[in-house]
Design a protein around this nucleic acid. Structure first.
Lengths: 147, 147
DNA sequence: TATAATTTGTGCGTATGTATA
DNA sequence: TTATACATACGCACAAATTAT
C-alpha cells in the first residue's frame, strides 16, 4: 500500500497483485487517478520509468504497458531520452462545417501522423465536401460548429 | 527475404534487421501492406503470433508490438483465446447535427470504452448541444451530416 | 567540444495464466 | 479434456535521444 502525496492532493495508490486485476491495469488506473486529481497537472513531467517501477514494485515492462495505455488515451506524451509529460489540451480552432458535407472520425494512418505531427492517441476529423473534396484535421486542435 | 503470396496478390515482405528501422515497425508495415493489398480482406483471421514469429524470424514480443500498433490504428481486432482479425468497417449511421451544436473528437475514457463497447483504436464523437447537453457516439459507427 | 549520466526505445528470453475451440 | 492462442509479468542487455557536466 503506497500513499502518493502531491502539494495539494493525496491519492491512495494501491496495487494489489492478488486481486485478479492485471498489474499494468492497476498501475494505469493509479496514474490516471493522479492526473485526474490534479496531482500532476498538464505539462507535468512524470517520474522516470525506473522510479515508478520501484514505487509500485513491478517490472519495467508493466510500467511501460500502463504508460502505453494512457498514451493511447491521449493523456500522456512521451519524448525519447527526455521523459513523459501530461498532455496539455490544445486550443481548439473553430471549424465551420461546409453545408452538405459529411464528417467522419478515425485514427490517422502512419503517413498522416507524420504529416499532421500527431502524437499518439489523437484521432482525425475527416470532412468530405459535397464536391468530393476531403480535408483531414487533427482531432485535438479543432472543434466543428454546426450552423 | 520472404515472399507472401495470397490468392490474388503478392506482397514482398522484407524484414531487414540491419536497416536501422526497428523490427517491430518493419513487421507492422508488412502486415499493413498485406491488409491494404487485399491479401487479408476485412474479417480475415491472421496467422497466430507463433506462426508470424517464425515467418518473420523475430521474437514474439516484436510481433505483439507490431500488432498493438495496428490495433491502435483501428485496423486489427484481437480476441483473447481466439485470434486476430482484420477489422470490418461498420455501417455508418447518418447523424443529423443539431443546429448550433459543437462537435469534438477524442479517444474514449476506459469507462466509455466499456459502456459503448468500443474496441481499441476507435475514437468518439462528442456532440455538445446549445443547451449544454452532451452526447457521445462511437466514432466507427456514425457519420455526421452538416445541414 | 567532448563525456558522462539519465531516460526512453528495442529485442530477446522464460514462465505461467486465461479464454476459446 | 486437450490443444491452441492470446495475456500477463518478469528479467536482461544494448541502442538512441536528451540533458547535465
Amino acid at each position: 500500500v503506497a500513499t502518493c502525496r502531491g502539494s495539494l492532493h493525496t491519492v491512495r495508490c494501491v496495487i494489489e497483485p492478488a486481486s485478479g486485476v492485471p498489474l499494468h491495469r492497476q498501475v494505469a488506473a493509479a496514474l490516471r487517478a493522479r492526473i485526474a486529481s490534479g496531482e500532476w497537472p498538464p505539462g507535468t513531467k512524470l517520474p522516470s520509468e525506473t522510479y515508478l517501477r520501484q514505487e509500485y514494485d513491478v517490472g519495467r515492462g508493466t510500467i511501460r504497458q500502463a504508460i502505453a495505455a494512457l498514451r493511447a488515451e491521449g493523456l500522456l506524451e512521451v519524448q525519447h531520452g527526455f521523459g513523459t509529460r501530461v498532455r496539455t489540451p490544445g486550443r481548439r480552432h473553430e471549424l465551420e462545417g461546409p453545408s452538405g458535407a459529411t464528417v467522419e472520425v478515425r485514427m490517422p494512418t502512419p503517413e498522416e501522423r507524420v504529416e499532421l505531427r500527431l502524437t499518439e492517441g489523437v484521432p482525425v476529423l475527416v470532412v468530405t465536401s459535397p464536391d468530393g473534396w476531403v480535408d483531414v484535421y487533427p482531432g485535438d486542435q479543432y472543434r466543428l460548429r454546426i450552423p
